[in-house]
């Protein structure tokens, strides 16, 4: 008995160790390292500068926060196409003259609540209205974008100087990094903890991996599904605050095609699109790979069209490699 207990512990420790060193993410780490090497070789004087690294992280922050929510939704067996539009809506709502008159705290609260509220609508439509997630969130994508245009009258809304506290998330630095990078890190850490250390996270895997088993185990899968979309919306609200800080604006054009980048990052990170399997760490690595590629193309002065082609190739290659690994692992 003592024997098995020790063995169990060793196995547990190995699993933890594996997770930390990221054997399962080794491919992603190598890919990221490779990109860094390419950067150091092609643009040695601009790539490894602290200002460039900061700009990569700042760029990654917005979609990064969205990616955390997206990871939950996809592991839970769904998909959220509305993230970019919901973020735009939240940024617009958070920067209307009316909202701004109450000060920065209300602006943040408003953006976050609008995001969570839109996510909740997605969740209710999917979980209780039994709409296919693709359709429900596609409808939200279109409608949220439209509502954002209507509220802003298609104008870009500036964050007023009285509310500069929000912009200071981007301009104030701590340990050399803008505060919003810490906000991003906080979301990632909290997301990781929720996914790996709470009943909510564990049930997310169950609901996505085998909904019938989850239901028969007494999990309220509809309510859980609803929460997942609300969580994704909440992340969009936080992302809206970050984009307000970075661009000092709220606009209905923010976040165009973010949903594709976020989904791609999650997929590259090894999360199964059919649900039940995936990690936050993988998604974030996937996102960083995407962001660094963008950065490299810009620094090298290359065409953005080529950048899109490269990204497309990377998605395909990443998934093909993962499938080979998965097959090798089971046989």
């Amino acid at each position: 008995m003592i024997d098995t207990r020790q063995r169990g512990n060793v196995a547990g420790r190995e699993a933890v160790w594996r997770r930390i060193t990221g054997t399962r993410h080794a491919g992603l780490v190598v890919a990221l390292a490779l990109l860094a090497v390419i950067g150091l070789v092609t643009v040695p004087d601009t790539f490894a500068t602290s200002s460039n690294l900061v700009s990569i992280l700042a760029l990654a922050s917005t979609i990064g926060v969205i990616t955390v929510g997206m990871t939950f939704v996809i592991i839970g067996g769904g998909i959220d196409l509305s993230v970019g539009a919901v973020m735009a809506l939240a940024s617009v709502w958070g920067t209307t003259l009316a909202t701004q008159s109450y000060g920065p705290a209300v602006m943040v609260l408003c953006a976050v609540l609008v995001g969570a509220g839109a996510g909740l609508v997605n969740g209710v439509l999917v979980a209780y209205g039994r709409l296919v997630p693709f359709i429900a969130t596609l409808a939200m994508l279109v409608a949220a974008r439209g509502l954002a245009q209507r509220i802003s009258e298609k104008k870009t809304q500036l964050v007023q100087s009285a509310n500069d506290v929000i912009v200071s998330l981007s301009t104030t630095r701590w340990l050399g990094l803008p505060l919003l990078v810490f906000l991003f890190a906080l979301v990632v850490v909290v997301g990781w903890l929720v996914l790996n250390r709470t009943t909510f996270g564990r049930r997310t895997y169950a609901v996505g991996g085998n909904p019938e088993a989850a239901r028969l185990a007494g999990i309220n899968i509809r309510r859980h599904t609803m929460y997942l979309y609300a969580l994704s919306g909440l992340c969009c609200g936080i992302a809206a605050v970050i984009i307000m800080a970075r661009t000092t604006t709220g606009s209905s054009t923010h976040g165009d095609l973010y949903e594709l980048d976020a989904i791609a990052a999650v997929i590259i990170g090894g999360t199964l699109l059919s649900g039940g399997r995936g990690t936050i760490t993988g998604s974030i690595l996937g996102l960083l790979i995407f962001t660094v590629i963008t950065n490299l193309f810009i620094l090298n002065g290359l065409d953005t069209s080529d950048q899109l082609i490269a990204k497309g190739l990377i998605i395909v290659i990443a998934v093909l490699l993962q499938r080979r690994n998965a097959l090798g692992g089971t046989s």
Partner: peptide, 23 residues
């Protein structure tokens, strides 16, 4: 089809229904 989370560990499968007791 109805009971197991095939990708998950034995432990996670056993505690699925009573997770609340350990939280």
């Amino acid at each position: 089809a109805q009971a197991l989370l095939l990708d998950q560990s034995v432990a996670a499968n056993i505690t699925l229904a009573t997770l609340g007791n350990h939280a």
